[in-house]
């Protein structure tokens, strides 16, 4: 008995050396042999025949939480390029946060199926009388002022977003998009931004400075459409 115990102890130490090649073979009389392969009259014994399996390992860790639900639709352009995060969605119009490496800040823009929709009831103001230089525009509505990043206004072929505080500006010219894209009225001149420039001169208005981003910078091609994620 002691001999067997000692042998088993030694076996535990050296046993792993055989694990790569060992086969357990049973002779005719029931004796067991460890060989590279069993001989003709021996019977191979399946590993795991003797003894109970060890207990199950510990339960695996909890999986990572799933991603939070997102708005089920995304807006894409004619080339399937996603416009950006939808801020507000209506069946026929949406405000979307659009980011572009060429624009210093993401902008929230209103879009419809046919593309960016120019406002025709908002004017831009300039200190000079040629609609060049820094544009100024009226303060955003209360609704718009709560949206971050800034809501940009589309006027003609450019978007404008606020860059400073309101001030009483004595302006020399205003720029506007003619309703329905009509030709510029007689007393105004057409700009290169599909807008009209009106020299008014001398009046003041409470407006703030704005930055201009040409819509072509975004590279988005109408029509825009909504697709399921």
């Amino acid at each position: 008995m002691r001999r067997l115990g000692a042998c088993a102890a030694i076996a535990l130490l050296v046993g792993p050396l055989y694990t790569a090649h060992g086969a357990l073979c049973q002779g005719k009389g029931g004796q067991l042999f460890a060989r590279e392969s069993c001989r003709k009259r021996e019977r191979a014994i399946e590993p795991g025949t003797f003894g109970d399996p060890g207990p199950d390992g510990a339960v695996g860790g909890q999986g990572a939480p799933g991603d939070p639900a997102v708005f089920p639709l995304r807006l894409v352009d004619a080339n399937d390029v996603e416009l950006g995060r939808i801020v507000q969605f209506y069946p026929s119009g949406a405000t979307v946060e659009i980011a572009n490496p060429n624009v210093p800040t993401p902008l929230v823009l209103f879009v419809i199926r046919s593309g960016f929709q120019s406002e025709s009831n908002v004017g831009l103001y300039y200190q000079g009388n040629d609609c060049e230089g820094v544009p100024f525009f009226p303060p955003p509505s209360d609704d718009e002022s709560t949206i971050v990043p800034p809501v940009a206004r589309v006027i003609g072929t450019a978007a404008y977003y606020s860059t400073g505080m309101l001030q009483n500006l004595t302006y020399g010219a205003t720029e506007f998009f003619p309703s329905g894209g009509a030709p510029c009225p007689g007393s105004t001149t057409a700009t290169t931004r599909a807008t009209c420039c009106s020299t008014t001169g001398g009046s003041t208005s409470n407006v703030g400075p704005a930055a201009r981003v040409l819509l072509s910078v975004f590279g988005l091609v109408p029509p825009f459409r909504a697709v399921l994620r």
């Binding site: 067997l4 042998c7 088993a8 030694i10 076996a11 535990l12 050296v14 046993g15 055989y18 694990t19 060992g22 357990l24 067991l32 042999f33 460890a34 014994i45 590993p47 795991g48 025949t49 003797f50 003894g51 109970d52 399996p53 060890g54």
Partner: peptide, 11 residues
């Protein structure tokens, strides 16, 4: 003994 150490615990 070696044989058992190899296979005895398996089942």
């Amino acid at each position: 003994g070696i044989t058992l150490s190899l296979f005895g615990a398996l089942g």
